[in-house]
Design a protein around this nucleic acid. Structure first.
Lengths: 182, 182
DNA sequence: TTGAGTTTGTTCGATACTGAACAAATTAAA
DNA sequence: TTTAATTTGTTCAGTATCGAACAAACTCAA
């Protein structure tokens, strides 16, 4: 990616998450974002159609990172940085625990609907790749699609519950909780 | 200044002073600077003719800040930030004490010749503006030019001596030392 | 409801930056 | 000295960003 694109993109993401740590998504204006990101208005809209797409992009960035660390050839520059563990689920919990870029604020926010939607959508793709890990638990009656949807929503709910309890359990423990129920 | 120019300029300055804190001016290559600054080669040369001009620019930036805080309307964005005291000399000593952007490395470096030259040149302009503070000390025999040169070099030597002694004396004390001898 | 102020999203000419290539100068090693 | 490798400084077509303006949509108090 062109150096300028990468810089603008990172600047906008960083400004966005900084603002998210202070106020809710709905109360953040594009004007505030571009001011904090120190980029022009036209630049913002060259990258993101709307504020919602920015949020979507942030989620994509998170899951890109998760996907990539799976493939082990972590070459491209991503705003999320860590040493990826074996389990993708543990990996995700760890990122939430680290509260990378205040991502948790998005989950526990009053207006988390949009984020949850993206979260869910991205997660489904991830779960599909790891379906084999749950294959033997799947009851024969249910369809695969339903099974994927079930595992995904269970994961989302586990995360929500965990965040609501201020993430007092360790990422390892909550991962085991999740694996135990599905 | 155009947002892009300002950003590139700041990035290059910051990369430069970071490198200066690790190695001497002569051992720093333009390649290293642009890598750390994360800008293209052509961009560097669009801003600075050579590495020497970069150093010159850094000095200018420091003295611009000093001059500006004198005029009290500190509007434009400068890489040096502080609350300016009454005495410009104290102000300068304070910046050295803070070691803003490793500026001291430049003074105590083996190859400080070039920097000292710029330092001296910039300082002369500053001293000229404050000549009235030393006017009653000037012997009648000596010319004004000589007097300026004398005060300037005395200040430079005071700074060098102070830095050499690891700046153990407070900025206030060393300022008084300086004012006492001239 | 009205009107003033804010925010959104778009437009466009001007400009800075990119990336890649290149010859020339410098440095280091053989 | 000769050679290889590094570094310098320049060039240029392609692209992203700038800044400033603008209409349209929205907000909210009067």
């Amino acid at each position: 990616m062109d150096r300028r694109k990468r810089k603008s993109r990172e600047a906008i993401f960083n400004a966005f998450v900084n603002l998210l740590s202070k106020k809710s998504f709905d109360n953040i204006t594009v004007g505030e974002i571009i001011e904090q990101a120190d980029v022009g208005r036209a630049t913002f809209y060259a990258h993101f159609e709307t504020k919602e797409f920015l949020l979507k992009g942030l989620c994509a960035e998170l899951f890109d990172h998760i996907f990539e660390s799976e493939l082990k050839n972590n070459t491209h520059r991503n705003i999320f940085q860590c040493d990826a563990p074996n389990s993708v689920f543990l990996h995700l919990f760890q990122h939430f625990k680290k509260n990378d870029n205040n991502i948790c604020k998005l989950l526990s926010s009053e207006n988390n609907g949009l984020f949850l939607k993206y979260f869910n959508d991205s997660l489904i793709k991830l779960i599909k790749n790891h379906l084999h890990e749950f294959q033997n638990q799947k009851p024969d009656i249910v369809s695969e699609d339903f099974w994927i949807s079930y595992v995904t929503s269970t994961f989302v709910n586990t995360v929500l519950w965990w965040v609501e309890k201020d993430m007092q359990l360790s990422p390892e423990t909550i991962t085991n909780y999740f694996l135990a129920v599905v």
